[in-house]
Simulated assay, not measured.
Amino acid sequence: MVTTNDRGVLVTGASGGIGRAIAVAFARAGDRVAVHYSTRRTEAEQTVAGLPGDGHALVSGDLADPRQVADLAAAAGDALGGVDVLVNNAAVVTSGYSVANADYDTWQRAWQETVAVNLFGAANLSYCVARALIARGVAGAIVNVGSRGAFRGEPDASAYGASKAGLHALGQSLAVSLAPHGISVTSVAPGFVETDRVAGRLSGESGAAIRAQSPYGRVAAPEEVAAAVVYLASPAARWSTGAVLDVNGASYLR
Results as ranks from 00 to 15, higher is better:
residue 30 G to Y: 02
residue 126 S to T: 05
residue 130 A to C: 07
residue 36 H to R: 03
residue 149 G to W: 00
residue 134 I to V: 15
residue 184 S to H: 03
residue 34 A to Q: 05
residue 104 Y to W: 13
residue 52 P to C: 08
residue 111 W to I: 14
residue 113 E to R: 14
residue 140 G to V: 01
residue 226 A to C: 13
residue 110 A to E: 09
residue 88 N to Y: 04
residue 147 S to F: 00
residue 228 A to C: 13
residue 123 A to N: 02
residue 34 A to M: 05
residue 201 R to S: 14
residue 109 R to T: 12
residue 56 H to C: 13
residue 53 G to E: 03
residue 194 E to K: 15
residue 31 D to F: 05
residue 166 G to L: 08
residue 225 V to F: 02
residue 156 D to M: 13
residue 207 G to A: 09
residue 51 L to R: 08
residue 35 V to L: 03
residue 246 D to Q: 12
residue 100 A to T: 13
residue 162 A to P: 10
residue 148 R to T: 15
residue 74 A to I: 10
residue 73 A to F: 01
residue 206 S to F: 01
residue 54 D to Q: 13
residue 126 S to C: 03
residue 215 P to Y: 00
residue 16 G to C: 06
residue 179 A to Q: 13
residue 96 G to Y: 02
residue 170 L to C: 08
residue 59 V to I: 04
residue 116 A to N: 02
residue 163 S to L: 06
residue 19 G to C: 10
residue 130 A to M: 08
residue 233 A to F: 06
residue 7 R to W: 03
residue 102 A to M: 03
residue 228 A to D: 02
residue 120 F to Y: 12
residue 58 L to H: 11
residue 244 V to T: 15
residue 141 A to V: 08
residue 252 Y to H: 12
residue 105 D to W: 00
residue 2 V to E: 14
residue 126 S to M: 00
residue 188 V to R: 02
residue 242 G to I: 05
residue 169 A to I: 00
residue 99 V to F: 15
residue 42 T to I: 12
residue 120 F to S: 14
residue 198 V to W: 01
residue 129 V to N: 02
residue 246 D to S: 15
residue 97 Y to A: 07
residue 117 V to P: 10
residue 228 A to Y: 04
residue 230 V to P: 11
residue 230 V to L: 14
residue 203 S to D: 11
residue 181 H to M: 06
residue 151 F to S: 12
residue 64 A to G: 15
residue 34 A to D: 04
residue 16 G to Y: 03
residue 182 G to Y: 01
residue 73 A to G: 15
residue 47 T to I: 08
residue 123 A to T: 04
residue 219 V to L: 01
residue 21 A to S: 15
residue 98 S to V: 07
residue 14 A to V: 00
residue 201 R to Y: 05
residue 223 E to V: 12
residue 36 H to K: 00
residue 225 V to D: 05
residue 48 V to F: 01
residue 251 S to T: 03
residue 134 I to A: 13
residue 208 A to R: 15
